[in-house]
């Protein structure tokens, strides 16, 4: 066997070995996180708000004293650099002589960039922002999670009160960018 032939054999044997000499390998992991905007008011059910009659002649009617709280729950996922979201509230009809106000408290549950409540606002048929600056966040689900909503009734024109009876009002909450 010639020296050249020997080298050729060795070289030939090494070629496939070299080709298989892979010292690393890889695999990909992917995940897609979609945009999310969900809102809910808990617990479910209507609120009945009744003015209380005065006990002494000459005194005005009193606003409802019962706890009328609801909790505003939401989940929001936004893109990096995308607009923040806000939540607005409105009513389907105004009641003559009566103001319906909503007080939104700071959320104490959940995580992420939760929104900032604007405090107490007067509800009307035009939506008004009650929480702003929501980005990627979740409040938790159900009563005692999220922003507590307190509803308050007051009179704004006593002379209009005699013309109304029980009225159903729908309060709508909307989350927008």
């Amino acid at each position: 066997m010639s020296y050249t032939r020997a080298i050729l054999i060795v070289w030939t044997l090494c070629i496939p070995i070299a080709a298989r000499c892979q010292t690393s390998g890889a695999s990909n992991t992917t995940i897609t996180l979609p945009s999310i905007a969900l809102i809910d008011v808990e617990p479910k059910g209507n609120i009945t708000m009744s003015f209380l009659p005065p006990t002494d002649a000459g005194n005005p009617i009193s606003p409802p004293q019962a706890d009328m709280s609801k909790w505003l729950n939401y989940t929001s996922a936004v893109a990096s650099g995308g607009n923040s979201r806000s939540i607005s509230a409105s009513i389907n009809q105004a009641v003559p002589g009566v103001d319906l106000m909503i007080l939104t408290e700071t959320a104490t549950s959940g995580g992420g960039n939760l929104g900032v409540p604007v405090g107490q606002v007067l509800l009307g048929t035009t939506p008004v922002v009650i929480v702003s600056g929501i980005r990627g966040a979740y409040t938790g689900n159900g009563k005692n999670n999220g922003h507590r909503l307190r509803f308050n009734l007051s009179t704004n024109n006593y002379s209009d009160l005699g013309n109304i009876s029980n009225t159903n009002i729908i309060i709508s909450f909307t989350i927008i960018e």
Partner: peptide, 29 residues
């Protein structure tokens, strides 16, 4: 020759892992 070529080898077989988080259907979660 084989030593010079770093003969420990590894191969990875398998598809990419596509993680699919569950859809969130309830506000607050």
């Amino acid at each position: 020759g084989t030593r010079a070529n770093g003969q420990r080898t590894i191969t990875v077989v398998g598809s990419s892992w596509n993680v699919n988080p569950e859809p969130i259907t309830e506000a607050g979660l």
